[in-house]
Amino acid sequence: MLHLKDVRPTVFFVSREGRLDQIVEITVENRGKPVEARVKILKGARASEIPVGPIKPGEGRYQIAVPEIGEEGPVEFALLVGDKVQDRRSITWRPKRHWEVYLVHISHHDLGYTDLPRDVLREHDGFMDEILRFCEETEDWPEEAKFRYTIEGSWSVLHFVEEGPEDLVEKLVRYMKQGRIELTALFGNETTELCGHEELIRLLYPSFGLG
């Protein structure tokens, strides 16, 4: 016997075959053996069935992708095994706002906190190799999906420019000019409250020198 303990619409959507499906999290208690289940969703005269997959013994959370419901109102969720309804739960459905989420990769420079400075620099050289590879691998992707990266300070870039292979340095400069790789202004992540005006100005010199 299955018990549908909770139905919780999330703010997440997935695009499938030209339509949006909203991710809904359900909590199911199974007091028996593993069993295949599905959910029937009723909104007014509309009905749809979505497979949940195997329900394990005990209480568990499962995610289903529900065709987007654009109107507020009561929606019934029925949990089925075969043709038999195991449990039902009605909720007041409230449409979720559509958000666009942009993920930006960024490095954090903790010089000397995580390892010796010379070892940290070598690690960042390796990071730079991967950054350039990811930029290259996504060259033919849609503009909004291309890999981008933000470098927090210029000290690691200066080391890479001085020590790295010439062809990779040229790639780095090219992607920076394209806006795919961003370099922030300061030499490192200094505690600016402890810096005087002259120190703050001179912290900009290395980044501007790369231009």
Rank of each mutant, 00 (worst) to 15 (best):
H124G: 01
R88H: 10
C135Q: 01
G112H: 12
Q178H: 12
L132P: 04
L80H: 12
E76S: 14
G58H: 02
R97S: 11
G82L: 04
I181K: 03
P57M: 08
H159R: 15
E137N: 10
E68W: 12
H98R: 15
A145S: 12
L183T: 09
E139P: 02
R133Y: 10
H124P: 01
R94K: 15
D167M: 08
D167F: 11
S107C: 01
E100Y: 09
E123A: 13
H98P: 05
I106K: 10
I64W: 03
E152A: 12
E162W: 11
V104A: 15
R122E: 13
I181P: 02
T184N: 15
I64A: 13
T92K: 14
D115I: 00
F187R: 14
R148C: 08
I64P: 00
L111Q: 08
H109K: 04
E182V: 14
G73N: 13
D140G: 06
E136S: 15
D140R: 13
D125S: 13
G73I: 05
R122Y: 02
I69S: 00
P142R: 05
M128K: 03
L186R: 12
W93C: 11
F187P: 00
E166I: 05
G58S: 13
H105F: 08
R118M: 11
A78P: 02
V75S: 01
E144L: 12
Y175N: 01
R180W: 07
L186Q: 12
L168C: 06
E100G: 09
P165D: 02
P117Y: 01
Q86P: 03
E163G: 07
G164D: 06
G153N: 00
C135W: 00
Q178I: 04
G179F: 01
E71G: 09
G153R: 00
M176I: 11
D110C: 08
H105E: 10
D87I: 02
L116H: 11
Q63G: 07
R97C: 03
E139G: 00
F134I: 02
S156A: 14
Y62K: 14
S90H: 07
G70K: 14
G188A: 08
V75M: 10
V81K: 14
H108T: 08
E137W: 12
Y102W: 05
E137K: 14
H105S: 13
V120P: 00
E143C: 04
I131T: 11
D129R: 15
D125H: 14
P67Y: 04
V173N: 05
L183M: 12
G126H: 03
V81A: 10
R148G: 06
G82K: 09
I55H: 03
R174H: 14
L103D: 08
K177H: 14
L183K: 14
E71C: 08
D110N: 06
E139A: 13
R89V: 01
R61W: 11
T184P: 01
R133V: 00
E162C: 10
K84S: 12
D129N: 13
V161K: 07
Q178S: 09
K146T: 05
H159F: 05
L132R: 13
R133C: 02
F134Y: 15
